[in-house]
């Protein structure tokens, strides 16, 4: 048996807010094997985003105590220096996409430049590679998109651009933090399908952070349910959905079914 791609054990992120300590993540274990798709589900404030940010080393510069371990291909992520971290982010490591693509794209830079700077220089001319990435995320029709600014695109297009940026480093692992939450319902499904296609075609592992169990049901192999900084239940998606053990999971499922019922 090979080591998992991402191996998190006993991860704690305690934020210092004034005199108080907020236990955003409080002892989480999470394994992601090569080429699999794992969902982390929970309501807002359950610590799922903080977990992903901590693992991707993208937490904002706040006073916090982080303990436990997180390894990527056997290498210690939490203690890794910035230089090694950059190496992983630039090529064949991991990347991340976010809930609000408008805020996460630079408003004063053209799309082409923002994708281009994520490409490493060693792999040849950038222009054709940018075009190839745009093709891959389903923006082939919009040729002039490289010359546009983020505010000139629709929400779905922006999220596709974000995905293109994330793919630029040919990552083995993609953290997707609420990738569809800010989008229209119809667009949500398209973006999700694009993610799933990329997951299959590229053999890329994905960690999807979401409050929406429907998203997990759609594409995830395994699922972890988080509440107040802890994983309360985890297992293969199918069995977890069929037979939830924890009442919190059952409640989330119930909520999700009800929402699905009223969907157009």
């Amino acid at each position: 048996m090979t080591a998992p791609l991402l191996d998190i054990t006993g991860l704690k992120v305690h934020l210092h807010v004034g005199e108080r300590i907020v236990r955003a993540v409080d002892g989480v274990d999470l394994q992601v094997a090569h080429g699999t798709c794992v969902g982390v589900v929970g309501e807002s404030g359950s610590g799922k985003s903080t977990l992903a940010r901590a693992a991707a080393r993208l937490l904002p510069n706040l006073p916090a105590t982080i303990s436990g371990t997180a390894q990527f291909e056997g290498r210690d992520l939490l203690g890794m220096n910035e230089r090694a971290l950059r190496g992983l982010r630039r090529r064949h490591g991991f990347s991340m996409i976010f809930q609000d693509p408008l805020g996460y794209l630079n408003p004063t830079q053209r799309i082409g430049a923002q994708i281009g700077e994520a490409l490493s220089d060693e792999d040849g001319a950038k222009t054709p590679r940018i075009a190839a990435l745009l093709d891959e995320v389903g923006l082939a029709g919009a040729r002039d998109i490289v010359r546009r600014y983020p505010h000139e695109l629709s929400g779905g297009m922006r999220q596709r651009v974000m995905i293109a940026i994330a793919l630029a480093s040919a990552p083995k692992l993609l953290f997707a933090d609420e990738p569809t939450t800010a989008l229209d319902v119809t667009v949500q499904l398209q973006v999700l399908q694009a993610l799933y296609r990329l997951h299959r075609e590229r053999q890329m592992a994905i960690v999807i952070i979401t409050h929406d169990l429907a998203v997990v049901a759609e594409i995830c192999d395994a699922c972890h349910v988080m509440q107040s900084g802890r994983v309360v239940e985890s297992g293969p998606t199918a069995s977890l959905f069929a037979n939830p053990q924890h009442p919190y999971t059952a409640r989330l499922l119930e909520l999700s079914r009800r929402r699905a019922g009223v969907r157009p």
């Binding site: 807010v17 004034g18 510069n61 706040l62 006073p63 910035e82």
Partner: peptide, 10 residues
């Protein structure tokens, strides 16, 4: 605003 003025880029 206790942490309002904190900046820093790693």
């Amino acid at each position: 605003d206790p942490r309002g003025a904190a900046g820093g880029l790693p």
